[in-house]
Design a protein around this nucleic acid. Structure first.
Ligand SMILES: [Mn+2]
Ligand SMILES: [Mn+2]
Ligand SMILES: [Zn+2]
Ligand SMILES: [Zn+2]
Lengths: 143, 143
DNA sequence: TATGCTTTTGAAAATCATTTTCATTTAGTC
DNA sequence: GACTAAATGAAAATGATTTTCAAAAGCATA
């Protein structure tokens, strides 16, 4: 599936008339090798460790492209750092965020999703995206 | 009810051992006279127009106190500006945010609230707060 | 009311994540 | 290989927020 994601991104880039660059390939490889909600700085450090030449601005720019291509989703929690997570086609989830240990637990709730659609409908509102974050303490931290 | 809110804040301040200052009184009066989701900068400008001497840092500091006291709620949307709204005792709502005109529509959904509690329970998670924001286009902007 | 101690304030500087600038390098085309 | 526009990296700029610090003000006490 990593190969498919690379292909998908390359199609997106081609359709957008973007050039294919060594930097983007490397950043994509490394992003795809990570798991869960990585911050730009964290990814930048990972990238830099194997490719010291790649600049921070390029990582910022490239992650934005990933999000635009549908490969990644931008997550803004309450710590002032933008994070990115992998998008799995056809799937969606929201987050429980532990303010004790910064753990992030993912959950899906079809009923909540549908209720949101109802609410939007009721207000004549067209949904582009939504964010549902529950902040508190995970089972470990609440002890 | 404005008087009650002032009293409530004064009790909070007293309990915290804070001194009563002209600046905080003025900022509280002006905050209570506003409606809906005001940004710190907006409130600062309002304050400055009648009280040019009051500094921005004081407005930042004071709004944080209001939130801490339970009088105000901090709202972080996706535009990089912190906003504050009035807290009505015993009430809670979430937001539909129009990315076209920046309008914010409030809604309440008891079922969604309860489902969140279920989810938390299922994960052994203790909820401190949550945010549910639906982004998209309001009925005016979608045309 | 004056004194002394401590908090609060305002202005300016600092912070920090992110974006922009711009000179240089590079990819894609001929 | 040469040309042209896009992409890059380093550094500067940005912008919201926080911190610093000297001066001002609140509050307890004499
Ligand atoms: Mn996730
Ligand atoms: Mn609201
Ligand atoms: Zn935890
Ligand atoms: Zn609108």
């Amino acid at each position: 599936m990593i190969l498919e994601k690379k292909k998908a991104f390359n199609s997106f880039a081609a359709a957008k008339g973007l050039r294919s660059t060594r930097q983007r390939d490397i950043i994509l490889d490394i992003f795809l090798s990570t798991h869960q909600h990585i911050s730009v700085e964290e990814l930048y450090l990972k990238v830099k460790s194997s490719n010291p030449g790649i600049g921070q601005a390029t990582v910022y720019r490239t992650l934005k492209l990933f999000a635009e291509s549908g490969l990644a989703r931008e997550i803004l929690l309450h710590d002032g750092q933008t994070r990115y997570e992998h998008v799995v086609a056809g799937e969606h989830h929201d987050h429980l965020v532990c303010t004790g240990c910064n753990a992030i637990i993912e959950f899906e709730d079809e009923t909540i999703e549908n209720l949101q659609k109802d609410i939007a409908l009721r207000h004549g509102f067209f949904i582009r995206s939504h964010k549902l974050e529950i902040y508190g303490l995970c089972s470990t931290c609440r002890i």
